[in-house]
Design a protein around this nucleic acid. Sequence first.
RNA 1: GGCCCCGUGGCCAAGUGGUAAGGCAGAGGUCUGCAACACCUUUAUCAGCAGUUCGAAUCUGCUCGGGGCCUCCA
Length: 481
Amino acid sequence: MSLRVYNTMSGKKEEFKPLVPGKVGMYVCGVTVYDYCHIGHARANIVFDIIYRYLQFAGYETTYVRNYTDVDDKIINRANERNISSHDLAEEFIVAFDEDMASLGLVRPTHEPRATDYIPQIIAITEKLIANGMAYEASGDVYYSVDKFPNYLQLSKRNMEEMQAGARVAPGELKQNPMDFALWKAAKPGEPSWQSPWGEGRPGWHIECSAMSSSLLGDSFDIHGGGRDLIFPHHENEIAQSEGASGKTFVKYWLHNGFVNVDQEKMSKSLGNFFTIRDILKTYDAEVVRFFILSAHYRSPIDFSDQNLTEAQSGLKRFYEAFEAAAAAITGIDLTGVSSDEGAKVEEKFVAAMGDDFNTALAIAHLFDGVRTINRLVSTKKFRKKTDLVAQVADLQQTIYRLGEVIGLFRSEPTAWLEKVKLTGLAKLSITADEIEAMIAQRLQARQEKDFARSDEIRSDLESKGILLLDSRDGTNWRLV
RNA sequence: GGCCCCGUGGCCAAGUGGUAAGGCAGAGGUCUGCAACACCUUUAUCAGCAGUUCGAAUCUGCUCGGGGCCUCCA
């Protein structure tokens, strides 16, 4: 199966060919662990989660590295505010991050390194850059000399003159060029520090990723990912460091996910418009969040809103309702010797969509086609006697489940999932499940007595409270309007 | 100011040269005591203008509108 990916470096979709046939090395910038993650972090991590899953589905033996940045100004500041150590603060939010990712149903990367476990490697790269003449020491700080790296700003497509015009040098920094950035920072009182050839200090942000990626994936690897906002300066600086040290091409494909916006604006703390993952999961099921995120292409911006999440929930419900109906319709039917190619048709389209720069929106649309086919077949007259149709439904159901696994969806038992969503919604109404059941019982009696006026009265009464009654052969069920 | 991206039906959203996927919502129909689910049918010429082309939502130019990066940031 062919795969094309959009490479930020070239600005184009390119045929994906890993450096080593059949194997992929992928590094994705993780989070700085100083606070709870928001929906934007959820998107970035879900996007690369499905890229990882798809690469494996496509047969690549994939090594996926996602780091924790556990030493940084923000961590230090936050730790000082709370009067605890940076280490303890980082640990607290690493645990929180892991919990959030687990509840969102992400698979764990192959490696999840912490920056502070790579201090020797960071120092080694820094020494090498100094030896190569690409970095210089100044009063215990070490800076990268961007003038020495000809390809600087190639990824972000900027030019040096204009960047320099806006660059600022903080007081006390001894930079030769205002664009130079710190590889190593001399220790200040109250900050975590490590011994180095330049005295006590701590690493700069960018060098951590260069050290962790080369240690776990080598000097050159296939995919480097992260949010758009990391293109400059973070990824630009990583390239400068890694290539400056190794002399080899750092990364073959650069992938960047788009933002989550709120009211068409970037979500940010300064605007106060951000939502944490744990808050969102109080109202919406994790798969709904994933479905919402995957319903747009990973490079497009998406707008976070209750309406959009509710729509995603309706869409996902359509899948689970079909699964429930399919399971009930085909259970216990012997299908030996009956075959179907319905699943293969869906799979082919799904793979084509995913292979075109991970077009999850289109891939899901093809799965919806499969759902419609299931629903249509299941309602055929004497369906259970027509084993060829039953085989098609079974095949589709199985295929959609299997493909859903590739994008991390449909992992719940349908009835349980539908029930959970129903009860979460019910919690917002002023009526309990028991009260509803009692009214259903009253209505049943009225219906048995053919008192349809009374029956309808109960129906409309419940409907005004947000509850819809569903009659079926097996009795009366209910759902939210 | 520099660089980059976007503007597709009521809403969300694919599609980047060959005649507009899918979802949500709506309308009509089948089904139902009524209702719901499901199914069937139905709803757009792609911000605007001008070009290139046999042919453009897709390429070029201009205009209008929105956003991002240039400082920490997924």
